[in-house]
Nucleic acid binder design. Structure first.
Lengths: 203, 203
DNA sequence: GAACTTAGACCGTTCGTTCGGTATAAGTTA
DNA sequence: TAACTTATACCGAACGAACGGTCTAAGTTC
């Protein structure tokens, strides 16, 4: 990767094209998988040549890193905003899940890559930042559940298991969600929250 | 891959070693990912040489196929057994989830590969059988939920979404389950079912 | 000695990456 | 504003390494 241009007039275009490369890469990685995607596949997807591509990226792995970065930071920020507002745990939970599902909807490709490469991310030290962001988000969710429990709004035999169930539900979303589906993000989020809060048993 | 030996005494050893190769492969694939695992990695894991390895397998992809096959067929069979017994929907559901979670526990590596290579499996026609088995299992679950709804035991605004929530919960399991954890398979299955059936809201 | 297993050198291919080059646009100077 | 300089954009051939897979011959077991 050549260093970004110094001339202001070019800097904007460079950033825009780099962004485009990352997004296209996310699309192809999501479809084919990161390792199964070759540089030639990326060439085809971006319309650049080998040399042109490497003008905008440092390496293939660098691309994977950017995808994760773009994905987690904004979500984490939004989650913190939501929790900083005064509200009861149920409201917080619903808002959090709604934002999260909407994020999945908007960045489905990124999310698929995120899921697929979970193990890659878990190994090397370079990914510590990404792991941390993921952990932080999960802690925020855990916090809401715990507050609900302390306030007597929620009750669960095993709060940790409940959190894992919720994580599973939403992390599975990118596998089946399609923009042309019957439900939109809000509908899915509401449905998930209803299921989690009230269950399905008739009383 | 050479054809299996004809003599019964050798056939057994051959099958046993082939099984061992598949299991070791599952372990390495689960850890590193299928594409990121090289033949040399498999050599190291199995203790065989290149020639020895290819004596027992047709190709790397063949290995992936066997892993899927081993995983889904027995689960599907057990699920059908469970459902063939007379019982109310809740009992069926709980038994199904218990068996499923136990299966994840026993074949965690296989399951991780299964999750990781979901996209590979979705594309090529060769994998139709695997896709079909997965679909069949999901249909069995859907059937139980639907029967519960028709009998007035369960109620959910969106049965399909409920199924997807359940699938997400359990499919996420291999990501965090460890045999040395606080909960065993039965505990996890029960916890999941409790959450799904009754929710967490205090009434 | 026939059936089976293993060894490891070797094959062609594809991989991610580099690099020297050229065309052009931006910025500078006169 | 014309001439000049330089930063940048992009290209594509070439690279060494690593890939999955094959092959033949030697070894082992029945």
């Amino acid at each position: 990767m050549s260093s970004p241009p110094v001339r202001p007039a070019l800097r904007e275009r460079y950033d825009r094209r780099q962004q485009e490369v990352v997004d296209q890469a996310a699309r192809v990685f999501a479809q084919r998988g990161y390792h199964a995607t070759s540089i030639d596949d990326l060439i085809e997807a971006t319309g650049l040549t080998r040399g042109g591509l490497y003008h905008y990226i440092g390496s293939k792995q660098d691309l994977l890193f950017r995808i994760h970065e773009e994905l987690l930071e904004p979500l984490l920020e939004r989650a913190r905003e939501i929790l900083s507002a005064d509200a009861d745990p149920e409201t917080h939970l619903r808002a959090l899940v709604r934002e999260w599902v909407a994020h999945v909807e908007r960045h489905r490709d990124h999310m698929l890559v995120f899921d697929q490469e979970r193990r890659t991310v878990e190994e090397e030290p370079r990914w510590a930042e990404v792991r941390r962001a993921r952990k932080d988000f999960e802690d925020l969710l855990a916090g809401v559940l715990d507050r609900g429990r302390r306030e007597g709004i929620f009750a669960m035999a095993d709060p940790q298991l409940t959190l894992l169930a919720l994580l599973g539900m939403v992390n599975y979303l990118p596998q089946w969600y399609t923009p042309r589906g019957r439900l939109d993000a809000d509908g899915i989020a509401a449905g998930y929250c209803d299921a989690l809060l009230d269950g399905i048993r008739v009383r």
